[in-house]
Amino acid sequence: MQYILWPMLAFLLLYIGMAVRGPSMWDRMLGMNLASTKVILIILMVASLQDMGFLLDYAIIYALSGFIGTLFITMFWGTRKRREKEKRDGTDQ
C-alpha cells in the first residue's frame, strides 16, 4: 500500500516540471493545479496509512486554498492579457 506513494511522488515531480517548463502561463497554472491534486492524494495516503482521520482536514484545506489561489491567478493574469489584447486591437474601452 505504501508503495503507491512513489508513483504519486513521480507524478508530482513531473507536474512541477510542467509548471516550471510549460511554454505558456496557462500551462503553468494547469501544472500547478495538477501538482496540488497529487499532493492531496499523498496526504490522503499518509492519513490512511496512519489511520488518523483528522489529517484529512488538512487535505480539504489544501484543496480549497489551492482553488482560491488558482482562481485569483487566472483572474488577474487573464485581465491583464485581455487589456493588452484590447490595446493591440485598438478597441480599448
Binding site: 502561463m25 497554472m29 500547478m32 499532493v39 483528522f54 488538512y58 489544501y62 489551492g66 491567478i73
Partner: peptide, 25 residues
C-alpha cells in the same frame, strides 16, 4: 514577475507538504 508568483505558490504548497510529512499538521 508572474512566473515568480506561480513558483511561489508551488513553493508554499511544497513547504506545507514538508511540514506535514515532518509531523506538524
Amino acid at each position: 514577475n508572474v512566473r515568480v508568483m506561480i513558483y511561489l505558490f508551488i513553493f508554499s504548497l511544497l513547504t506545507s507538504l514538508a511540514y506535514f510529512l515532518l509531523g506538524s499538521p
